[in-house]
Design a protein around this nucleic acid. Structure first.
Lengths: 249, 249
DNA sequence: GCTCTTCCTTGCTCCAGGGCAAGCCGGCTC
DNA sequence: GAGCCGGCTTGCCCTGGAGCAAGGAAGAGC
């Protein structure tokens, strides 16, 4: 792929001005006025991540607060006995690694790019200063943390009370909501998502996920390809997730 | 029980001055100076809760932010299909119902006093104003939310990857850390805690919890009575929780 | 095209733990 | 003391889903 004149070098980093534009579009910062946004820019540095690259590793000291601008990351954790757990996928506009940075703990998980990505990062102290000096930012952050907490709690409740099939349905619906893209056949989850990935999100095995998806595919609810899932009848999936949807169609 | 002169009426409410003293001792507010504490007092009202009384009900609009001063509460949720889940126990110094109040959602759970309790409550708007006007408070709140989030996430991971026995061990250790009291035989979990309660915390049944505790009792790790648990060998329990502790002693 | 790798499927076995029934125990009220 | 009630225990059965093995299919690299 030759470099074409006038075309932006794919791996080049955005200018301060461009960063400013990106940040202005992020919900966490939407309440800031022009001058506050300028202050926020102090210490903001862009970071490019190739697919497969890690934004940070589990156990590392959390020195940075980051926000994803483009791409997709997977936040996952390895337990003491070696099991892999996926905590969440991160899509543009979301902060990541922020909680560890805010409370001074090491990162509890690793963040891996699953698509070419671009993030903006601040050193921990710089971002802490911003939070302390920009009340509108800290208020937003409180809202964001509340939301995250509620989500984590819901997932806990689901794990505690629901069976695998239902958890798969919920995971897919959540992902569709987050990264779904309308395509001809239905809603495509716009993320490389293998059976194993799904299994790690809901605490089961790739085998069980495979069986569930095969069943749904037979019944026309989804189309499941290689690391690729399309929801053909999201509404039916909602029935599976929410209620006893009568196991046969 | 006759009322004795000079003794405080048990159901009387504390004065503003006493509330001030209580709040000053709470971690969330420890960074506030004298004048900030005075401002915080605006809108703060004491609430007494008898054992069995609810501080709020799941589904209610979250109109208040509360902090527990004395006693113990149980935060629990009923799922759509009627299963009971216990999210956590609340001990003095902890906020509760706060997250719903901060992000304007209805309470996702009910808070029930399991011992005579005293709380301080603010109307949502009043507390929001305090948070927005007291940067030191909002910083603390961010820290508290981060911690809560991390805890919820850990519990999720445990549910996703660990078997029942280990989850019971973790739940007991967590409770011991939170409400443990040294007694002659070991560490007493200072809370009425039935098998059913434990089951609801970790997503299993009272039967399974009973079997696990009976086994541990035989092995001398715990002493389990009627709604009452004493850890005789907390260290052994840590081994169960953390690692493969060799199933026989 | 062929090969290698990775992901996916499916059949079989096995077991942790859920569900239920029966009965026990300890503390309460009358 | 008698009876009751709520919590606890234990035995039995049964199933959801884990674990494993063998083989198939879709890309990726040559």
């Amino acid at each position: 792929m030759a470099h074409m004149p006038g075309e932006r070098e794919p791996s080049s980093l955005p200018s301060q001005e461009e960063i400013r534009g990106e940040l202005a579009g992020i919900p966490l910062f939407e309440d800031l006025d022009e001058s506050e946004l300028d202050r926020l820019l102090v210490g903001a540095a862009p970071v490019r991540l190739e697919t497969g690259a890690a934004a940070f590793h589990q156990g590392d000291e959390a020195r940075t607060f980051q926000v994803l601008v483009r791409g997709r990351l997977k936040l996952s954790q390895v337990t003491a006995d070696g099991q892999q757990v996926t905590l969440r996928y991160i899509t543009p506009g979301e902060m990541f690694g922020g909680i560890a940075a805010l409370n001074g703990k090491p990162f509890p998980a690793s963040a891996l790019a699953v698509a070419p990505s671009l993030a903006v990062r601040w050193e921990r102290e710089a971002f802490q200063r911003h939070v302390q000096e920009l009340p509108r930012l800290s208020w937003k952050l409180i809202g964001e943390l509340s939301r995250r907490f509620s989500e984590a709690q819901s997932r806990f409740r689901e794990m505690a009370t629901e069976r695998v099939e239902r958890r798969v349905a919920r995971a897919l619906l959540r992902l569709a909501h987050q990264t779904g893209r309308r395509v001809e056949e239905g809603v495509l989850i716009d993320l490389p998502l293998s059976r194993q990935d799904l299994a790690e999100m809901i605490g089961t095995t790739q085998f069980t996920v495979s069986r569930v998806l095969s069943d749904w595919e037979r019944r026309g609810l989804v189309e499941a390809g290689r690391a690729r899932v399309i929801l053909r009848q999201p509404h039916q999936l909602v029935l599976v997730a929410e209620d006893l949807a009568g196991s046969e169609g």
